Deep mutational scan, measured.
Amino acid sequence: MPSETPQAEVGPTGCPHRSGPHSAKGSLEKGSPEDKEAKEPLWIRPDAPSRCTWQLGRPASESPHHHTAPAKSPKILPDILKKIGDTPMVRINKIGKKFGLKCELLAKCEFFNAGGSVKDRISLRMIEDAERDGTLKPGDTIIEPTSGNTGIGLALAAAVRGYRCIIVMPEKMSSEKVDVLRALGAEIVRTPTNARFDSPESHVGVAWRLKNEIPNSHILDQYRNASNPLAHYDTTADEILQQCDGKLDMLVASVGTGGTITGIARKLKEKCPGCRIIGVDPEGSILAEPEELNQTEQTTYEVEGIGYDFIPTVLDRTVVDKWFKSNDEEAFTFARMLIAQEGLLCGGSAGSTVAVAVKAAQELQEGQRCVVILPDSVRNYMTKFLSDRWMLQKGFLKEEDLTEKKPWWWHLRVQELGLSAPLTVLPTITCGHTIEILREKGFDQAPVVDEAGVILGMVTLGNMLSSLLAGKVQPSDQVGKVIYKQFKQIRLTDTLGRLSHILEMDHFALVV
Results as ranks from 00 to 15, higher is better:
His218Pro: 04
Glu128His: 05
Leu42Met: 11
His67Ile: 11
Gly246Met: 08
Asn194Leu: 09
Glu4Lys: 14
Lys119Cys: 00
Asn228Lys: 01
Asp133Gln: 11
Gly185Ser: 00
Arg18Ala: 14
Ile142Thr: 04
Gly31Ser: 12
Ser63Pro: 07
Asn228Tyr: 00
Gly85Ala: 07
Phe99Val: 06
Arg196Cys: 08
Ala159Gly: 05
Glu176Asp: 07
Ile142Trp: 01
Leu181Glu: 01
Pro192Trp: 04
Asp249Ile: 01
Ala107His: 06
Ala8Thr: 10
Trp208Ile: 08
Pro6Phe: 08
Ser73Lys: 11
Glu187Arg: 06
Val10Gln: 09
Ala157Arg: 02
Lys137Arg: 12
Ile76His: 08
Leu28Gly: 10
Ser23Asp: 10
His232Ser: 02
Gly96Glu: 10
Ser61His: 03
Glu239Met: 00
His22Arg: 14
Asp79Gln: 08
Arg182Met: 04
Gly134Ser: 07
Ser175Trp: 08
Pro273His: 08
Pro64Ile: 13
Glu34Asp: 12
Leu42Pro: 09
Leu106Ala: 11
Pro200His: 08
Met89Ala: 04
Ser63Met: 03
Ile76Met: 12
Ser63Gly: 03
Thr235Lys: 10
Tyr233Phe: 12
Cys52His: 04
Ser227Glu: 10
Ile127Asn: 06
Leu241Arg: 08
Ile188Gln: 00
Leu220Phe: 03
Ile76Ser: 08
Lys172Arg: 09
Thr150Asp: 04
Gly153Asp: 01
Ile264Ala: 02
Thr141Pro: 09
Gly185Ile: 00
Asp179Ile: 02
Gly148Phe: 07
Ile122Gln: 00
Arg164Gly: 05
Lys75Val: 14
Ala159Lys: 02
Asp238Val: 11
Pro41Thr: 12
Gln55Cys: 15
Pro200Leu: 11
Ala226Gln: 10
Lys30Val: 10
Gly85Arg: 06
Glu144Leu: 02
Thr135Asp: 04
Thr191Pro: 01
Trp208Thr: 09
Pro192Arg: 09
Pro64Ala: 09
Glu239Ala: 00
Asp86Gly: 11
Lys83Arg: 11
Lys98Ala: 11
Lys269Ala: 11
Met89Leu: 12
Ser63Glu: 04
Trp43Tyr: 13
Phe197Arg: 06
Phe197Glu: 06
Ser147Asn: 03
Pro33Gln: 11
Gly148Lys: 06
Leu42Thr: 11
Tyr233His: 09
Ala186Asn: 01
Asn113Phe: 00
Ser202Tyr: 04
His218Ile: 12
Lys137Asp: 08
Gly20Asp: 10
Gln55Val: 12
Ile44Glu: 11
His232Pro: 00
Ile122Val: 03
Lys267Ile: 11
Ser27Phe: 05
Tyr223Pro: 06
Ile92Ala: 03
Val178His: 00
Arg276Asn: 15
Cys165Asn: 01
Leu230Asn: 05
Asp140Tyr: 07
Ala159Trp: 03
Thr5Lys: 10
Pro64Leu: 05
Gly96Met: 10
Gly139Met: 06
Ser199Thr: 10
Pro49Leu: 03
Pro59Asn: 11
Leu28Asn: 10
Leu268Gly: 01
Gly115Ala: 13
Arg51Tyr: 09
Pro229Met: 01
Ser147Phe: 02
Ala159Val: 15
Glu34Asn: 03
Thr135His: 11
Thr193Tyr: 08
Arg161Met: 07
Ser61Phe: 10
His67Lys: 10
Lys82Met: 10
Cys109Asn: 08
Asp140Ser: 09
Ser202Arg: 03
Val178Asn: 02
Arg164Pro: 08
Met89Gln: 02
Cys103Ser: 03
Leu81Phe: 09
Leu136His: 00
Thr257Trp: 00
Met89Glu: 04
Gly31Glu: 14
Ser147Lys: 03
Gly26Tyr: 07
Leu181Pro: 00
Leu248His: 03
Glu131Leu: 05
Glu40Lys: 11
Gly139Val: 04
Val178Gly: 04
Thr193Asp: 10
Thr87Ser: 07
Glu128Asn: 09
Gly153Ala: 02
Tyr233Lys: 04
Ala130Glu: 03
Pro33Thr: 10
Pro215Glu: 08
Gly116Val: 13
Lys98Trp: 11
Arg224Tyr: 02
Tyr223Gln: 02
Glu187Asp: 15
Arg276His: 11
